[in-house]
Design a protein around this nucleic acid. Structure first.
Length: 475
RNA sequence: GGGUCUGUGGGGUAGCUUGGUCCAUCCUUCGGGGUUCGGGACUCCGAGACGCCAGUUCAAAUCUGGCCAGACCCA
């Protein structure tokens, strides 16, 4: 096995190597940007989906599933939206040998598939709110370099769509989604910034978009999700109306909340280290690996002790693997570290006879557990690992931001910059040019740095009305 | 859309300038045997590649053309 490239110096090379070493995907499929989920990768994806489902159902969403194909006329009803996706859609134009009368698009997102049907579903104020989600593949013909999880053409997509009675309720729903995401992010030990995107960068058709960005070092950011407020922008062209209690026909106000496997990419990017992937326990396909270390002379006690403990851990609901393969212990350690397993239990002849185990977590912390109540001690060690992982990520998050008040400071930034901006688009573009990245937008949550009151606009020097915005370099 | 560069086993590579010593190097990987076993063991046997199609030539991984795929830069 070969050492990974340096994460700080060559992030992308490191990332690709870490994903490769962890065997999360097989990228050798013959279509660019469409990767194969391996058994190991699939387990982490399922765990991620389960987390999303848990949190979004907690705020009242229910699962649905719409078809993959959308008829062209239906797709083109909302002008901004079409314009935004026009050059990214895959077309289905033939059925067998004959051309289709009405071409179909492979959904790049599902607004235009769902909303004509929402118009049928929503008739009365009693049908509201309508809160539904689906987890499906969407397709976008990306022209830039594709990378596993971060930029793909077949996207494993979570999308929640809601219809609310009025603008205020839609705004409240946006907040509920943000709160749900906070819980997901906490479970994944991923601190994030929520930013209201500038108008030129919002979702096509949205009233406003709040993007969830995760700093991944060196001033680079990963947008891993968005919550959008559509107001009536879609309900009008698609005719989604209801009768309010007074009998008046009104258009619904809609919101959406989207996430993808990029979240998995963010887990790799944020937590990974020189030995590869580090999974928070909620995502780990294997949460605990037990490594029995053979006694000289070949006694079976370590293997038996490992198997017995593994059974008890499984009874507690943990995902456990006993590595009794014929490799040397050191080789096993490296193997399971590169695959991100949070906790390793070593059981040699000494431990087997003492009824203890040596526990080493993925951050290198070593403790001896037992004797007695080993399964409980293991569960506690896993929780402790998650807390340490969170603390480490939060510490990195705090140092990932810094204030800048002059355009010259932006070039070559190795942090996400907090800058004063007057709000004019021209100034926004000057900021983007200076940092060679993008204006992420105005923070929706308190920042880890407290910049005080904003001074004059970093680009034009205008004093009045300047506000703090985040600027970074999206990956 | 314009330009520059690159395609060698599953992954990473050497060889290419100057064609022949290449039925292609090394590391890793994979299958099997033996000795081993508290941080990437050793050893033996085996598997696996010149992006595709033409051309030049006695001879092509190497030169030429086209195609395909990818990377980077510019619009």
């Amino acid at each position: 096995m070969v050492d990974l490239p340096d994460k700080a110096e060559r992030f992308i090379d490191w990332y690709l190597a870490a994903v490769e070493a962890a065997e999360l995907t097989d990228k050798r499929y013959e279509v660019k940007g469409m990767n194969i989920w391996t058994p190991y990768g699939m387990q982490s994806r399922r765990a991620l989906d389960a987390l999303l489902v848990r949190e979004v159902e907690r705020i009242g969403s229910r699962a649905i599933e719409f078809p993959t194909l959308i008829p062209q006329p239906q797709f083109e009803k909302e002008k901004e939206h079409v314009k935004g996706f026009d050059d990214q859609v895959y077309w289905v134009t033939k059925g067998g040998a004959s051309a289709l009368d009405i071409p179909l698009v492979l959904r790049p997102t599902s607004e235009t598939a769902m909303y004509p049907v929402f118009a049928l579903w929503v008739r009365s104020h009693r049908d509201l709110p309508l809160n539904v989600y689906q987890i499906v593949s969407v397709f976008r013909y990306e022209t830039k370099t594709t990378r596993p999880f971060l930029r793909v053409r077949e996207i494993h997509f979570f999308e929640e769509h809601t219809c609310q009675a009025d603008e205020a309720r839609a705004t409240a729903r946006v907040e509920e989604d943000l709160a749900a995401f906070e819980r997901m992010a906490a479970a994944l030990a991923l601190p994030f910034a929520a930013s209201r995107r500038p108008d030129w960068d919002k979702f096509p058709g949205a009233h406003y978009s709040i993007a969830l960005d995760i700093p991944v070092g060196q001033g680079r950011t990963l947008q891993i999700g968005t919550v959008h407020h559509y107001r009536e922008n879609f309900s009008r062209p698609y005719g989604i109306q209801y009768e309010d209690p007074a009998g008046t026909l009104r258009y619904v106000h809609q919101t959406t909340f989207g996430l993808s496997e990029r979240l998995l990419g963010a887990v790799v990017a944020v937590h990974g280290d020189r030995r590869g992937v580090v999974f928070p326990s909620i995502l780990a396909p294997v949460q605990v690996v037990l490594v029995p270390i053979a006694a000289p002379g070949g006694g079976a006690a370590p293997v038996e002790a490992a198997r017995g403990l593994a059974d008890r851990l499984r009874d507690r609901g943990l995902r456990v693997h006993v590595d009794d393969s014929d490799e040397r212990p050191g080789a096993k350690y490296y193997r399971w570290e590169s695959r991100g397993v949070p906790l390793r239990l070593e059981i040699g002849p000494r431990e087997a006879s003492a009824g203890t185990v040596t526990a080493v977590n993925r951050l290198g912390e070593r403790t001896v557990l037992g004797p007695g109540e080993l399964d409980r001690a293991v569960a506690d060690a896993l929780s402790a690992f998650d807390r340490t992982l969170t603390a480490r990520a939060e510490s990195a998050f705090r140092s990932a931001f810094s204030v800048a008040t002059k355009l010259e400071e932006l070039s070559g930034s190795t942090t996400v910059r907090v800058v004063p901006w007057c709000g004019q688009e021209a100034c926004g573009h000057r900021i983007e040019a200076a940092i060679e990245g993008g204006v992420l937008g105005t923070p929706e949550r308190p920042l880890p740095v407290d910049p005080g009151a904003p001074g004059p606009c970093i680009a034009c020097g205008e004093r009045s009305g300047a506000r703090w915005v985040l600027a970074g370099r999206p990956l």
